[in-house]
Design a protein around this nucleic acid. Sequence first.
DNA 1: GACGGTATTTTACAAATGATAAATAATGAG
DNA 2: CTCATTATTTATCATTTGTAAAATACCGTC
Lengths: 202, 202
Amino acid sequence: MTIQGKMDDASASQPDLLDPLLDKIYLLPAPSRLSLKRYIREVSYPKGHILLRADKIETDIYFIKKGIVRAYAQTPDNEITFWFGQEGDTVISMKSYVENQKGYEDVELLDNCDLYQLKIHDLQQLFGQDIHLANWGRKFAEQELIKTEERLISRQFRTASQRYNELLQKNPALIQRVQLGYIASYLGITQVSLSRIRAELK
Amino acid sequence: MTIQGKMDDASASQPDLLDPLLDKIYLLPAPSRLSLKRYIREVSYPKGHILLRADKIETDIYFIKKGIVRAYAQTPDNEITFWFGQEGDTVISMKSYVENQKGYEDVELLDNCDLYQLKIHDLQQLFGQDIHLANWGRKFAEQELIKTEERLISRQFRTASQRYNELLQKNPALIQRVQLGYIASYLGITQVSLSRIRAELK
DNA sequence: GACGGTATTTTACAAATGATAAATAATGAG
DNA sequence: CTCATTATTTATCATTTGTAAAATACCGTC
């Protein structure tokens, strides 16, 4: 296999944010990376757009180039925000991706967002053809797994107050960008309780 | 690559529980499965044995052939059980496996257990050599991810009472096999609260 | 800079959960 | 079978968190 001297279309236009994003997961040999990038396209949606829906099997995954999103689940009485995604994060219905089944979550854009879009089907084709991409997909799942495990641990082991402070420390920008009602929901408490927590710190 | 006519040592002795366990993750071609099985050995430990330790980087993963285990984390004041494993489940320190770092959990055997043992190092070697095993590893991570996500969702969306009933329905055997103090910890409540929940149902 | 709408905080009260200790039940060793 | 040990349930009271509603702060638009 030889590497093309010319650059791919996508990477010609501007300083590329996609390469570091792919490399962060697993460093691919150039040919493998090119064959992956061939299937990725850039899309933009406005604030308020619903990117993923709980009631459908999603066909695409997205990497966030710019913007912020939240995932939430509808319950009989209310709605629970359980994830925020920002630049560099992956927006994905794991249930769709792994099991080809409906997921739990709606994902709403909290800003105008620029996203990299990739068809799950195309990705799965590549997994069967290229061992480097198969390992890239493995590392991707493993890294998402660690993140999910850490969220579970955080939730199980720490009080809402501790978790708020953890968030404040690890991701102060988030609290600026997102309204507190969503943060409270994310922490598993009411907005009133969150207000009490915040009041204590002053 | 050709398939050996003779069976591997391990599979000669008794009706094998390992094959279905590996196949459940991802159906491997026979040569790939054989090269994986070559690295798996069977071990037994008594009730009370600590299989994984939070303060060390683990070198092995285990599949449970027979028995039941719990994972728990030590906190300043008490200890929190956050996972139970039974026949067919994988016992693994994800932090060790994915990031080569210490994990959160001790894993204690609640019974005498028979386990399949596999060195993380050997597995990772295989991932680089065989695309089928790389995809097996990918599916393994993906399935663990789905399970972890479901635990997170369950914890985030449902009350302890709902989660107890969910457990009662999905895994009634567990409640027979494990003392209620561990179950209460797992549900994120005190044993007193769990007693109250159980009392309501009568 | 005044207005209307939205987000956040505060208050008062009700409900749920936790801590502690005591009572009962189950289990296992001799 | 009995005793000792451990597990589970019950009771009481203190603390935390939730609900509902009102008060305040913030933001964008005209």
